[in-house]
Amino acid sequence: MRRAATVVAAGRDVAVPDRLLLAAVVLAAAAVAEVAVRAGDPGPGLPVALLLALAATVPVAFARAHPAAATAAVTTAVLLTLATFSTPTLAAVAAQLVVVVLLVTRRVRRRRAAASHRAASERAVADTLLEHAARGERARIARELHDVVAHHLSMISVQAETARLATPGLPAEGAHRLRAIGDTAREALTEMRRLLGVLREDADDGGTRRPQPGLPQLIELIDEARDVGGASTRLIVSGQVRPLEPGLELTAFRIVQEALTNARRHAPGAAVDVELRYAAEALHLRVRDSGPGPAAAHGRPAGGHGLLGMRERAAAVGGELWAGPEPASGFVVEAVLPTSPAREPEPSP
């Protein structure tokens, strides 16, 4: 079967030049016959007319392999015929049409192939950039969550050790268990730092590390956005305000931060409202700018790196995020983040 396919394929490859050769022979014969009929009695111009007739038709046989050269040869022969005998043969005109159509088809195919290759390359580059952006954002999320979890593990270790040392009359079994809790917390913290150490070093600029921000720092973020953007930026809070898990507060802060950055970039000078609504089981975020309108808002890339990062962060805490233009004007980012009340650390005895 494979050999038969090869033969068929080879037959197809040979068939096209054969048809052109056949066309060249037919056109050449027709041109010679037409010149002979027109000339009537042989004269001194007959050999020249026959030569030009052949020159205008025979190159068709080579049009597949050398379309530009064949077109040039046929065109030159037709022009010389016009200059010498005023009228070319019908076969020469047909040959001219054949070679020009073949030349145009070849160029169209090449342009399509080049455009397809260029589009594929652009898609590959865009996919690579998006993948790098996703990996970088996931690394930043993991690094920040690492800081939050490390704090809790450290608190567990400290509280277990404090309870073991400060509780009078603690049975030996209880002390042993508290020591085991502290050791387990320290081992988990060590392993986590070992696994995520590269992520911490990647963002370490040599300066002093600060605690990860949360919702209380939103006021400073709003003030900074108002000062930098020179536009009205409001923080609207509704519902029963309560402390949430540090990882979730960090996620909410970063989403608002990125949304404000996007608003300054794509709708400079537009007013921005940041809304936080505390519900029983979720924290609802909404960042909306009063940009120029849906047409301009649609210019924002729906799958840009900033939106990708916000979606990654929302998904990391089990939430969802939507972003898009408003019906009348502006652009909105909305997120729903499932919540559970943060537990206050027990005071040390």
Rank of each mutant, 00 (worst) to 15 (best):
D273V: 01
V274C: 13
V274G: 08
V274I: 10
L276S: 09
R277I: 03
R277P: 01
Y278A: 01
A279Q: 13
A279V: 03
A279T: 04
A280G: 08
E281D: 15
A282P: 00
A282R: 14
A282Q: 15
L283Q: 07
H284A: 11
L285I: 09
L285M: 10
R286C: 08
R288I: 04
R288V: 05
R288D: 04
S290H: 14
P292W: 00
P292C: 02
G293K: 03
G293L: 05
G293F: 02
G293A: 09
P294K: 10
A296K: 03
A296Q: 09
H298R: 15
G299W: 08
G299E: 13
R300E: 14
R300L: 15
R300K: 11
P301Y: 09
A302E: 13
A302K: 07
G303P: 02
G304N: 10
G304S: 13
H305G: 13
H305T: 15
H305F: 14
G306R: 07
L308C: 12
L308P: 02
R311H: 09
E312V: 06
E312W: 00
R313N: 02
A316S: 15
G319W: 03
E320D: 10
W322Q: 00
W322C: 00
A323I: 04
A323T: 02
G324K: 10
G324L: 11
P325A: 14
P327I: 12
A328M: 02
A328T: 14
S329L: 05
G330Y: 01
F331D: 12
V333C: 04
V333S: 00
V336A: 09
V336L: 11
P338K: 08
T339E: 14
S340K: 04
P341I: 06
P341T: 07
P341E: 14
A342K: 04
R343C: 09
P345E: 04
E346P: 09
E346C: 10
P347L: 10
S348C: 02
S348R: 02
